[in-house]
Amino acid sequence: MGNRGELILVAALLLGQLIFLAAQIQDPDNQDTLLDRAAIGLTTPVASGIDGAVRAGEGVLLGLRDRASLKRENEALHAQIELLQKRTAEHQDALVELSRLQESLGYQPPLEQEVRVARVVFANHRALLRRLVVRLLDEGDTEFAKRSPGSAVVTEDGLVGRVITWLPPNARVQLVTDRSSSVGVMVARTRRQGLLRGAGDALLLDYLPMQADVREGDRIVTAGIDGVYPRGVTVGTVISVRAGPELFHEVVVAPAVDFGRLDQVFLLGNEAPPQELMDGELEITQGPGSTASTTDREGGAGQ
């Protein structure tokens, strides 16, 4: 093939990719695509294999280097286990007492949340879109993905993000710092709600009116109003508050989680409310034998 023919083919290759790229930008909300699933299916096994080898190597090196300190740590952990066992026994007594009180008051506690542990398989912290690939430790658990399609992802430090594509046991996670991420949050001190959106490395708290009380150092937690994230998970800390150009504050929040150090994460099961309810189309029962949809009611109110 001549130089000219080669150049034409390269140009066609570039043009094809550019058109494909532009088509993806046209439809930014469609994150769970067939292509994305195929990409996870093809790349994650390789990435997972490499990750496993890296971990094994790390484990051997760590074992050789820290043998003495591991022995000491083991002894300290044994002592801690004994202490925790004592505390657990105390807590069990308290739980029995609590359930007795709940019964006498007729209180219904919220359902326990399902939790799964996953390992971070691939991360690129300089990428345009802040995303991770994780793999469930229990690889046979495919039912969890069906039950929790948009599972919230957390660590002991706070909120990491949410699953946007499942290919069990692998999942692609959108970090809260991703530019297309938004989380319903509140200021823990005042319970004032706002919308937190990703801005690359930091987070911006939107729709917090000027009269709202927010200060540097305030802890921001999830409000549980978006149907994705449970209430009360720490998201970050306010690092700067300025007067915005309109009637809202300009609040910058530092994430609670150091995304560069993520190794294991927890995936929370989410019993999201029915989509029809979120869209305002669920039929509601008004009384025995009579039903009306919320959209009907809106129509009726207008008449």
Binding site: A39, I40, T43, V133
Partner: peptide
């Protein structure tokens, strides 16, 4: 792009 979950073609181009 596939590993980082980026827009497909951005680093491809």
């Amino acid at each position: 792009d596939a590993l980082a979950g980026s827009l497909y073609g951005l680093h491809g181009i």
